[in-house]
Amino acid sequence: MTRRFGLSLEAVLKTLAVAACYYVAGRLGLLGRLTVEGVIVTPIWPPTGVALAALLVYGTVVWPGIAIGSFLLIASLATPQLSTLVTVAGNTVAPLCAFLLLRRAGFRVGISRLRDGLALVFLGGLGAMLISATAGVGLQVVTGRLDTAEFWSVWLAWWVGDAMGVLLVTPLLLVLVGATGPLRLRRWKEMLVLALTTLIVVPLSVLGELSLLFLVFPLLIWVALRFQLAGSMLCALFASVLTTFEASTQQGAFLNLSAIEVMTKLQAFNGACALTALLLSAMVAEQRALRRSVQNACRELAEVLEHLAAGETPPDLPADPRADDSTRAADRPRDV
């Protein structure tokens, strides 16, 4: 009885924590909102990343926290109505479907394989977020707040924003909770140089009137090769957030562009950053794991050869079964 109550209390606390994190992430995401066809959209919607990370770490037991956080977030912006339940349902079902699809595909939270990165992109991000985008924008059309001719432009912006939340926020949260393994700070000098370079190159690329956004990608490649997921996703998120805020004011690389052009350029940049950081980090991690396994196999083989050369039985190999048979035969009593 006590154990069951303890587990229930733990589940309630996790659910409330997920709801709080979802709400805070939503408020932060709204700081970089844009207007497309009169509808407010966010190029990066962090709550989707928070929701999927919570499901990957804690399981489906915390799904009510996603619904509660979504409802509180909508209630903070407008008076809740019956149609609000449709948006809440879409925001809850989409991460749940992403979690189930990833689990079916054998996804590992460490994202240590290229197939894990591809699964997160196409199943968790681009695939499952079709649900939330369709439910949210479809509701706008049904209630008459959005014209049918404007459906696809708003739907595309909504869908990409939800997907970017998964691709940029979920991996970083998995790193922070230790699901991808312990953080190693042995190369702290290189990390310091890289951090200073990031703080200089990214603002220079984004804030300048010239379109120099391409300068971010060599930096992302460097980080992914040296520090894998932890460094590359942090760098990609910093670049995407800074670019989003610059696009919301239509300054720098987004000067004199229409709303559709701003959204197209911004989403293409954010998507390229997320894919470069995520897939390259997963590929490097997989190659390093393969190299370590080959090195371990070679080390074990060398030890076996040393024992064989010395005429000894290797410790991991069984002794000669014929010797055991002869010994047992010698120990058996003979008939007189």
Rank of each mutant, 00 (worst) to 15 (best):
V88A: 09
A51W: 05
R103W: 04
G90L: 11
C273T: 06
R4T: 02
V141Q: 13
A163M: 03
L100G: 03
I131R: 05
R145A: 14
Q228I: 06
G110Y: 04
K265N: 12
G59M: 03
F71V: 05
G117C: 07
F71P: 05
L82W: 07
L280P: 04
W63H: 02
K14W: 11
R299M: 13
L167K: 00
L317N: 04
N270R: 03
S132V: 13
T243E: 09
T249H: 12
S258K: 10
V86F: 14
S211G: 07
L168G: 01
L212V: 11
T198K: 07
L77M: 10
E312A: 12
A157M: 02
A98F: 03
L210W: 15
K14L: 10
V262D: 00
G26P: 09
D162H: 08
P318C: 12
L120S: 02
V262E: 00
S248H: 11
T148V: 09
A289S: 14
D335T: 13
V86C: 08
E150Q: 06
M164L: 12
G49N: 00
M263I: 00
V166E: 00
L301C: 09
I131D: 02
R184Y: 06
P182R: 10
A195Y: 14
P182N: 04
L301H: 14
L167S: 00
S70E: 08
G90Q: 06
W222P: 00
V62F: 03
R115L: 15
C273Q: 05
S132N: 10
W152N: 09
R226E: 13
T148F: 09
F5R: 14
F71W: 12
F238K: 08
T48G: 02
G178S: 04
L82S: 08
L101F: 09
